[in-house]
Design a protein around this nucleic acid. Structure first.
Length: 761
DNA sequence: GGATCTCATGTTTTT
DNA sequence: CATGAGATCC
């Protein structure tokens, strides 16, 4: 039984538990994926459960992939018929299989993503004559989504006030439109399976018999729909193996409810509970910090995390002056640690909001350290990808009016809004979808239509193309179909036209080619499956995970990952915890869990930073160090306490300009920086008239008022050597100089950091 | 039909 | 500040 050898006692207990409800409370780094995979193998090998009777559910494709891979490795090949997937993909599969039993839907429904949903809500508001200023589409959509996650259909949506009354109507109409488009949104995938099961006990029974064993990962993140789904499937046999950690529940705002963990114990009073408390990731110090942070939350199951990695480096807490300094502190530390055998991939910089990534990126670019931004603009949300996918979707499902609207005049074929309205009205008259109507126009020369010759011609051309694609899509591989589309619509030319510069056009085209590659890779996949795949998969870029780069990511994106060195930034009240959570204790606890998740990602070292001032909506504001820092025991921290650091920053800051042009000369002190900032000394760019006699240039970070470099100047840079200034512009509080260096190429440099020496014009 | 301007807006986002 | 959506102009 080699595969059971390396398990600790608690893991072993969980893996070998007798069939029945099992709840595994797994602390961070306690080997939960290991337990899940080994449990699956145990079921198959020891309990002789056939693989097709096992379903393992995760939230992300990545988690599903990892689990499947680990099983395959341990078993020498993937077991036939084993179901491992996300909630959404498993539900989509069930709905496809039961396509004929779904009231209101036809086979081959498509999946609408968030963008499409917004379009539908806008259409809904128009239909109902509602003002989209008063009822912002995304808010309406949120309400609808929340209702679906709670398994509340539109008819049961409680109209307790004006807003909810409107929401109820919007929700109802929204569903009608989805059905007319033969489309489901993400939430429908879950809810419709539940609805199907509730309406058809025979179908439910079929799946209950098929899936005798159900395993759920990240159980704390389940919402009511997901929990309801599991509960129904397991109602007959109770063979549910749930793994989760309520301390890592950070998706409450998406309907996730960690109380499902308690519900589990109510649903299955005989559930076996297993606590995984041994951590295999972090040092004891890191763990102790994490524990004292999370301890402050109420109503939680206490876990006594421990590790064999005694001691460790103390964590470091630093206050920077502003975001830029915070970023350079981090970059400096990364550079220093890279001299000690760490490589870029060992570092992760985490933040609460995406907006914070900006300053960090700039600092990494400047320092020439490779980084990757995780989860920024998703591949499939890019305009060019959405365009092409819309064509594919329309070919597959002519009822999809959202895609039709997107595509009818993209690239422009001179079919304006007026004509489009006419198309819709005319199609309705013929009882056809707009797409089918346009095809009809192209194929039936006798058809009556209301269009001018010019419009009719343009429409017929489009209809003709559509018709061709529809005809060949049976035989052609998705990749070939895609090529035909690109050619037919001259998409490359279109990109060249709309892009601001060559770079953008090239980027966008590269993305299209990336999509084409994905299509080519799935050569024998049907169009329907391909569309589903790309609708349910978000991270195409997860492919090159092996790249040796520093990771920049939000705390949310960090869950489930681990890094030797972790930087947690923006530990300020208003950022972490976020302003929007300050007046609600539940949200505040979730913010604290975010912090906890961040700390527990680290193996060796944790660096926490906050800055003294931060830009909010265009103005600088002084910050308050995060209340969470008070929960970090000072004996585990290297350096001064936040309060002491704040005093030191104030001393330093008295030299810096507070409101852009006034300077407090009275508090001026000629001392070296109090904290270990090792960034290059900024160069003063103050105009002479502002300088006082005892002015110390070393401390001046204030804005230059005039450009110091101009195009054509010869300059010397300490590292890059001699170069020629090709551009210089003032940016807020600095000057950005582009310099062409013969050996290294063109560099964009911040004048205050680059210390360029002018050597001639 | 496309470019340009103005105005409001402002967490987190596994699918 | 920076972005995006809608209106307005050409």
């Amino acid at each position: 039984m080699t595969y059971l050898d390396g398990l600790n006692e608690a893991q072993y207990t969980a893996v070998t538990a007798p069939p029945g409800p099992v709840l595994v409370l797994a602390g961070p780094g306690s080997g939960k994926t290991r337990v899940l995979t080994h449990r699956i193998i145990y079921l198959m090998r020891e309990l002789r459960v056939p693989p097709w009777q096992i379903m393992a559910v995760t939230f992300t494709n990545k988690a599903a992939r990892e689990m499947a891979q680990r099983i395959a490795r341990l078993m020498d090949g993937s077991p036939r018929g084993l179901t491992v997937g996300t909630f959404h993909s498993i539900c989509a599969r069930i709905l496809r299989r039961e396509g004929d039993n779904l009231p209101g839907y036809e086979r081959g429904f498509v999946i609408f993503d968030t963008d499409d949903q917004i379009q539908v809500v806008k259409q809904t508001l128009k239909d109902l004559n509602l003002d989209d200023k008063k009822f912002p589409p995304y808010k309406m959509l949120n309400n609808i989504s929340n209702a679906k996650n709670e398994l509340i259909p539109s008819e049961e949506y409680a109209a307790t006030n004006y807003i909810s009354e409107v929401t109820r109507r919007v929700y109802g109409r929204y569903q009608e439109i989805l059905r007319a488009n033969n489309a489901m949104d993400f939430d429908d995938l879950l809810m419709n399976v539940v609805v199907l099961f509730d309406g058809r006990p025979d179908i439910l029974q079929k799946y209950q018999e098929r899936y005798q064993h159900i395993l759920v990962d990240e159980f704390q993140d389940t919402n009511t729909a997901q929990y309801g789904l599991i509960k129904r499937l397991a109602a007959a046999h109770h063979h549910v193996f749930a793994v989760g950690d309520s301390d890592q529940s950070i998706y409450r705002w998406r309907g996730a409810d960690y109380r499902n963990i308690n519900r589990f114990r109510e649903t299955y009073p005989d559930a076996q509970m297993v606590l995984l408390e041994q951590n295999y990731r972090s040092t004891q110090i890191i763990l102790d910090v994490a524990k004292s942070v999370i301890k402050q939350n109420r109503n939680r199951v206490h876990k006594d995390l421990f590790t064999e990695r005694e001691g460790g480096e103390k964590i470091v807490v630093r206050e920077a002056y502003d975001e830029q300094e915070e970023a350079s502190l981090i970059v400096d530390t990364v550079q220093r640690l890279m001299l000690e055998n760490y490589s870029p991939r060992d570092f992760a910089v985490m933040y609460r909001t995406n907006a914070q990534s900006r300053a960090l990126e700039e600092a990494f670019v400047r320092a020439n350290i490779p980084y990757r931004l995780i989860g920024a603009t998703q591949f499939y949300k890019r305009r060019e990808i959405k365009d092409i996918v819309a064509y594919l979707r329309l070919i597959h499902n002519p009822a999809d009016t959202v895609s039709f609207n997107r595509v009818i005049n993209t690239p422009s074929r001179k079919i304006g809004a007026k004509t489009q309205d006419k198309v819709r009205a005319w199609a309705a008259q013929l009882a056809l979808s707009p797409a089918d109507a346009v095809v009809r126009l192209a194929t039936d020369p006798d058809v009556q239509h209301p269009f001018t010759a010019r419009a009719a011609n343009a429409l017929a051309n489009f209809g003709d193309m559509l018709h061709t694609w529809q005809t060949i899509r049976e035989e052609a591989a998705v990749g070939d179909l895609l090529d035909l589309i690109l050619e037919g619509i001259h998409y490359r030319d279109y990109l060249d036209r709309i892009a601001k510069d060559d770079d953008e056009a090239r980027d966008r085209w590269a993305n299209v080619m990336e999509l084409r590659n994905v299509a080519a890779l799935s050569a024998d996949v049907s169009l329907e499956d391909f569309l589903e795949q790309i609708a349910l998969v978000s991270d195409v870029d997860a492919l090159d995970e092996e790249e040796n780069r520093v990771s920049l990511l939000t705390l949310h994106a960090a869950k489930g990952l681990e890094f030797p060195v972790v930087f947690l930034t923006g530990l300020e009240d208003g950022v972490l915890p976020h302003t929007r959570s300050l007046d609600d204790s539940e949200s505040l606890e979730e913010e604290r869990r975010l912090f906890y998740v961040g700390i527990t990602r680290a193996e060796d070292r944790v660096y926490i930073s906050h800055s003294f001032r931060r830009m909010f909506y265009g103005n600088w504001e002084a910050t308050v160090p995060s209340r969470f820092l008070r929960d970090v025991p000072s004996e585990l921290v290297e350096g001064a306490s936040p309060a002491v650091q704040r005093e030191q920053t104030k001393t330093r800051a008295s030299s810096w300009d507070w409101s852009s042009n006034t300077r407090s000369s009275s508090g001026w002190k000629k001392e070296k920086r109090a904290t270990a900032v090792s960034s290059p000394k900024p160069v003063s760019a103050k105009p002479k008239y502002q300088q006082s006699p005892d002015f110390d240039d070393d401390f001046d970070l204030a804005a230059p008022q005039t450009a110091r470099y101009e195009t054509g100047q010869k300059v010397r840079h300490a590292k890059f050597g001699e170069g020629i200034v090709i551009e210089s512009k003032l940016t807020g509080n600095d000057e950005e100089v582009s310099v062409a260096f013969p050996d290294v190429g063109i560099k964009r440099l911040a004048a205050s950091f680059a210390r360029l020496e002018v050597i001639g014009d």
